[in-house]
């Protein structure tokens, strides 16, 4: 190991896990849309980090684990190449209690719409916006993870948010029209 580096020990790794598990899981979930797979990827990223600990500096470990996890998720997704709809039993947990059947349907429809909007983003914009919004990172931190200038992070985030807002507005309008049409036909 190079001089001046602080090695990662077991306690440091576990402390990092406790701190970043949730945001990392949330980021990875937006690539896989599957709770178990997202959890697996988080585990795998930390396991790989542990195996490579001799070559990793504690100061840069957090960006590194994000980079590993996103790359793993992206690769997993590419190898899967199948569009899987999220079934109810594999849906992620939320804060509140279980919703009733009507709420569940509405929730699933909303999630499907959100998913379509996120999937429509180009990969590089998606990486930026998920790290900014879900991991709560600064432009500088995201820039370090993705190895791009902070200005690029800002512009990609802006573009991604704009696209998401437009996509969801269009989807909401489409659903409203659909509901009205159903009302008119008495269904």
């Amino acid at each position: 190991m190079a001089a001046g580096r602080e090695a990662i020990d077991r306690a440091a790794l576990e402390e990092l896990y406790a701190r970043v598990e949730k945001p990392l899981y949330n980021v990875v979930y937006r690539w896989l849309w599957d709770a178990e797979e997202a959890h697996d990827i988080v585990q795998e990223a930390f396991y790989r980090l542990w195996r490579a600990r001799a070559r990793v500096d504690l100061a840069t470990v957090e960006p590194l684990v994000y980079r590993i996890a996103i790359n793993l998720a992206s690769n997993r997704r590419r190898s899967r190449r199948l569009w899987q709809w999220v079934s109810w039993d594999r849906s992620p947990r939320r804060h509140s209690g279980a919703p009733d059947a009507g709420e569940s349907l509405a929730l699933e429809q909303r999630r499907a719409a959100v998913r379509r909007a996120v999937e429509a983003l180009p990969e590089r914009q998606k990486r930026v916006v998920m790290l900014c919004e879900l991991a709560g990172m600064t432009y500088r931190q995201v820039a370090d993870i993705l190895d791009i200038p902070p200005g690029t992070v800002a512009s990609r985030r802006h573009a991604a948010l704009k696209k998401l807002r437009r996509s969801l507005a269009a989807l909401t309008a489409e659903k409203r029209d659909h509901d009205r049409a159903l009302e008119r036909t008495g269904l």
Binding site: Y25, N26, V114, A117, L164, R165
Partner: peptide
């Protein structure tokens, strides 16, 4: 934005 970035529990 809340819908897109809804926080999920691992």
């Amino acid at each position: 934005k809340e819908q897109v970035f809804e926080e999920l529990e691992p």
